[in-house]
Design a protein around this nucleic acid. Structure first.
Length: 403
DNA sequence: TCTGGGGTCCTAGGACCC
DNA sequence: TCTGGGGTCCTAGGACCC
């Protein structure tokens, strides 16, 4: 596809940029001895595999044992997260230099909207080409870019163009391109949905597109059915949005198959809550909902959650809640065994300005919280709003609020 | 495939409110 | 007495993504 075609159509303006085998590529960049050799990052579970390792069937999320069987001569390295974070920052700087409209999806991929940059930077195809070269020159990593009119299709393009590739689908070629693909290529179709589709003979996106929305809804449910129908026709109105805020923060820990005593379990829980609460305070955010996640011996899962009356990032309050949730699951854990424990916090808000440094709440804040609790007990939640306002006024040494 | 750690979004029922 | 229409929030589970 040449740049002239692209500029004529000029509507494939969303880029999806995706680093190739990111963790493994950083390791190969930093250690020349690893270049050209199969590299596996992560021992217990494969976090990333270089393309040389993938040639032997090694995939990320695969168990380390199987990976070693498939590729015995692979170099296994333990992850260096800080190196990856640094590399990611450097790459995102290149993104930000390309266009102000950058939406990070994960540590190694982002959407970029390059509409309206024709006079400054050229066509989307030229921009994508420059971006790839700049990342290679400045950061030393291979990156693949997909270009299309929608996020969904741009993402599909980058997946197909990997590794170290560039693929643009012009608007008038969308249907032909999309409809020939297997259904798994659609962003949002995982193993379960793919199985359901294949069970009724739907293997290509074109077949899904031809089916019609009602039939798809009947097969997959309303949400998934509608979404899939739209995506199969490349109808995807999602914009590229800069800086989306996190909606939850969590931590989890795999426990293996060994039996755990309640005391061991509690120690793990304390560690998780402490870690998560610390990250919350660092991010100056507070949470109202505590979610406890467990995985049993048979890998089935269960979650329990509790929503607090007031948002907090204080370890003791969060820990008490998490302990209560874990206690409620005790009988199940007793019966079925536990292989993973996780805590995540949602319903997030910014730390109120009067409560900065919540982790070290002073006597006064504690007294105020106690007052709020007693008000709640006596008069119910409806009295709390006014009490909170009064409390803030008091803490900020403001005059009393009018009724 | 035999299993790590971090997320997002959707659904559905029930409690509760006006 | 038996019941409309609209809404929010909470909880639990599930699918999916990197």
């Amino acid at each position: 596809l040449d740049a002239n075609v692209c500029s004529l159509l000029h509507d494939a303006t969303i880029l999806h940029a995706d680093l190739d085998a990111f963790f493994a590529a950083v390791e190969q960049r930093d250690d020349p001895a690893l270049r050209g050799r199969p590299v596996v990052v992560g021992a217990g579970v494969v976090l990333a595999a270089s393309y040389e390792a993938r040639a032997f069937g090694v995939r990320s999320a695969m168990g380390g044992k199987l990976a070693r069987q498939l590729c015995p001569h692979a170099v296994v390295v333990s992850p260096r997260m800080s190196a990856y974070v640094d590399a990611s920052k450097a790459v995102f700087e290149v993104f930000e230099d390309t266009t102000p409209l950058v939406e990070g999806i994960s540590i190694d991929e982002a959407f970029l909207d390059v509409r309206g940059l024709a006079r400054i930077s050229g066509t989307p195809l030229q921009i994508a080409d420059d971006l790839r070269r700049t990342v290679r020159e400045q950061v030393g990593l291979p990156i693949t870019v997909g270009v299309a009119r929608t996020k969904s299709l741009a993402k599909i393009c980058s997946a197909l163009a990997k590794p170290d590739g560039l693929l643009l689908v012009p608007a008038d070629a969308e249907a032909v391109f999309l409809h020939a693909l297997p259904v798994e290529r659609l962003w949002g179709v995982g193993p379960v949905t793919a199985r359901r589709l294949r069970a009724v003979g739907l293997e290509r996106v074109g077949q899904v597109a031809a089916l019609g929305e009602p039939a798809l809804v009947a097969l997959l449910g309303r949400g998934t059915g509608r979404k899939l129908h739209a995506l199969a026709h490349n109808r995807d109105l999602r914009r590229v949005r800069a800086r989306r805020r996190r909606r939850s923060i969590g931590a989890q820990h795999a426990l293996g198959r060994r039996q755990r005593t309640p005391a061991e379990l509690d120690a793990v829980l304390v560690g998780l809550v402490d870690r998560v609460a610390g990250r919350m305070r660092k991010a100056q955010r507070v949470a109202r909902t505590v979610v406890l996640r467990v995985r049993f011996d048979d890998f089935a899962r269960a979650t329990r959650s509790h929503t607090l009356a007031q948002a907090t990032a204080e370890t003791p309050a969060l820990l008490a809640t998490a302990r209560a949730l874990l206690g409620a699951l005790d009988p199940l854990i007793e019966r079925r065994g536990i292989t993973l424990l996780g805590v995540s916090l949602s319903n997030l808000a910014d730390t109120p300005s009067g409560q900065l440094g919540l982790g070290f709440a002073d006597e006064r804040a504690r007294a105020l919280d106690a007052t709020l609790d007693s008000i709640r007990e006596r008069y119910g939640n409806s009295a709390i709003t006014r009490a909170v306002l009064l409390g803030r006024a008091e803490r900020a040494s403001l005059p009393q609020l009018p009724d």
